[in-house]
Simulated assay, not measured.
Amino acid sequence: MQFNWRKINRVIHRDLGYFFTGMIIIYGLSGIALNHIDDWNPNYIIEVQEKKISLPEHFDENNQASVLAILEQCGVNQDYKNHYSPSPGMIKIFLEKGSSVTVDTATGIANIEIIRKRPVFYEVNFLHYNPGKLWTWFSDIFAFSLMILAITGLFILKGKNGIRGRGAWLSIAGILISIAFLVIYL
């Protein structure tokens, strides 16, 4: 029986590719999101609104019922957590899930900040940020497997499109571009 290293190479490449499809998508999406962190918040959608309200009659900033009346006027559905007065004439109301309402009691202007998790991106970024020891191990195995995928991928094709032809030129170009960015950014 002859040892067929090309067949074993294809099997390893194929099976690792199938097994880590989910991880490749997770890290691909979160990588794109994190690359553009200066352009947008990849984890949260933050909506800011300004609304003119009228304070309830006999308003008392220390009375929770008065503060809840403000939230009702603002049309905020999130649960009240707490509130305080950071300075005279200002009230900051904290809501569940990080949202808040800041009210200028002199002008009746309420600044409403509603925070929601960005669908899909929040979850993939959560995993990208490495939430625990088991995930660390799985991610390390994935990283090692990516190197195996890269190496086995070099030897999938034979001939002019393989590593001795076009594949060599493309591999060299990819390596040189990576080195160029290292030189530029370091």
Results as ranks from 00 to 15, higher is better:
M1R: 14
Q2L: 11
F3I: 15
W5F: 06
K7T: 12
N9H: 04
N9S: 09
R10V: 07
V11E: 13
I12M: 12
H13L: 14
H13V: 15
I25T: 11
I25H: 12
I26M: 01
L29G: 00
L29P: 00
G31A: 02
I32N: 00
I32V: 06
A33I: 02
I37N: 04
D39I: 04
D39M: 05
N41W: 03
E47F: 09
E47Y: 07
V48R: 11
V48M: 13
Q49F: 10
E50P: 10
E50T: 10
K51Q: 06
E57F: 07
E57N: 11
H58V: 11
F59L: 02
D60C: 12
Q64G: 03
S66N: 10
L68N: 11
A69Q: 04
A69D: 05
A69T: 04
I70N: 07
L71S: 00
E72Q: 08
E72F: 12
E72T: 13
E72W: 08
C74H: 08
V76R: 00
N77A: 15
Q78I: 10
Q78F: 09
D79A: 08
P86T: 15
S87H: 14
M90D: 03
L95Q: 00
E96D: 15
G98W: 01
G98F: 02
S99N: 00
S99T: 00
S100R: 03
T102N: 05
T105K: 02
T105Q: 06
A106Q: 04
A106T: 03
I109C: 05
A110H: 01
A110K: 00
N111I: 12
I112S: 01
I114H: 01
I114N: 02
I115Q: 04
R118M: 00
V120F: 15
Y122S: 04
H128G: 04
Y129D: 14
L134V: 09
S139E: 10
D140A: 02
F144D: 00
S145P: 09
L149Y: 00
L154R: 00
F155Y: 06
I156H: 09
L157E: 02
G159L: 13
K160R: 14
I163A: 03
I163K: 01
R164S: 09
G165W: 09
G167K: 10
L170S: 12
A173T: 14
G174V: 07
G174W: 06
I175L: 10
I177W: 07
I179T: 10
I179K: 11
A180C: 14
F181A: 02
L182G: 13
L182K: 13
L182C: 06
I184R: 01
I184M: 05
Y185M: 03
